[in-house]
């Protein structure tokens, strides 16, 4: 075997290792030298964009979500058409659907081919409850709510996420995409007080041995308490600060980073937030 052939094999092997990974710990990727053109110019580097997307629909304030028919229609259109129902989304949080919004929730979930799960955040009065709805794509075997002070609940479930690894050339063009399905423990809730935050995220629900992620909202004044509570290998990042609440992400820094959070107005003060996180 010539030296040239040995070097080519070694180069190929190193590229395969860089792009490797498995379903349980998808990883790899990074920048790949672009090589040179036939004219001898250096090509820009290719990059790998790894994305898992989670959506949240919210006003990030203290108002109920379905405050008008127009808003209900806009949210339905977003979930059913923009996200293409079950085909374009994995986990979608609808904030403050509340008990009064149950008819709208059922209308949207049915039309989107998704399964709704309620996450209580406050007992206002008998028959009047504040809370979120999480839309998943399959019937869940466990969507466990734990009671916190003030009628608030933190919920934990096992979420099937469809990650995508995209190879992008130097001009920003997507060359190829690779699906990377994964299942992760997912935590969510809407928190108003420091007590709720502390009880929602004890060390036991964020173990170093597990790859847990959380997306939820917290009152802006309490975000610093959330930062103080999240420790060990886990980090918390503010994704979007609204009028009264902050949308946040929690994950282990050795497994995750945040690509970004894009928002779009659905109707009035209701926005859709698309959270993009990258596995390492």
């Amino acid at each position: 075997m010539t030296l040239h052939k040995v070097l080519m094999i070694l180069a190929a092997a190193s590229m395969l290792a860089a792009c490797g990974g498995n379903k349980d710990n998808p990883g790899g990727g990074g920048n790949t030298p672009g090589g040179t053109t036939p004219e001898g110019e250096t090509k820009p580097e290719e990059t790998i964009l790894r994305e898992v997307k989670i959506q949240a629909v919210s006003t990030l304030s203290s108002t109920t979500l379905f405050s008008s028919d127009a808003i209900a229609s806009a949210v339905k259109n977003y979930v059913v058409t923009t996200l293409n129902g079950r085909n374009g989304a994995d986990v979608t949080i609808l904030e403050r659907t509340d008990s009064k919004g149950i008819v709208n929730v059922n209308t949207i979930a049915g039309a989107a081919y998704r399964n709704p799960y309620f996450v209580m955040s406050k007992i206002v009065s008998d028959g009047n409850y504040e809370g979120n709805t999480v839309l998943l794509n399959t019937p869940s075997r466990s969507f466990a709510g734990t009671s916190l002070p003030g009628g608030c609940y933190r919920s934990i479930t096992s979420a099937d996420l469809n990650g995508v690894a995209s190879k992008i050339d130097g001009s920003g063009k997507v060359i190829s995409t690779t699906p990377v399905p994964m299942t992760r423990t997912f935590i969510t809730g809407r928190f108003d007080t420091a007590d709720q935050v502390r009880e929602a995220f004890p060390a036991s629900v964020l173990p170093a041995s597990d790859n847990v992620i959380a997306v939820g909202t917290v009152k802006k004044s309490v975000f610093s308490d959330l930062q103080s509570t999240i420790g060990g290998n886990y980090f918390v990042e503010a994704l979007e600060e609204g009028p009264e609440y902050t949308l946040f992400f929690v994950g282990q820094s050795r497994y995750w980073s945040v690509n970004g959070c894009q928002s779009s107005v659905l109707s009035g003060s209701v926005k859709a937030y698309e959270v993009s996180i990258a596995w390492k």
Binding site: M120, Y129, F143, A144, S147, Y153
Partner: peptide, 26 residues
């Protein structure tokens, strides 16, 4: 509550409640 996959969907049982559901398992 899923028993098995059936024709692109599922077959099983259902719980409906006018009271909010705070925890689910099957």
């Amino acid at each position: 509550i899923e028993s098995y996959v059936k024709n692109e969907g599922w077959y099983g049982n259902v719980i409906l409640s006018k009271y909010p559901i705070v925890s689910y398992a099957s």
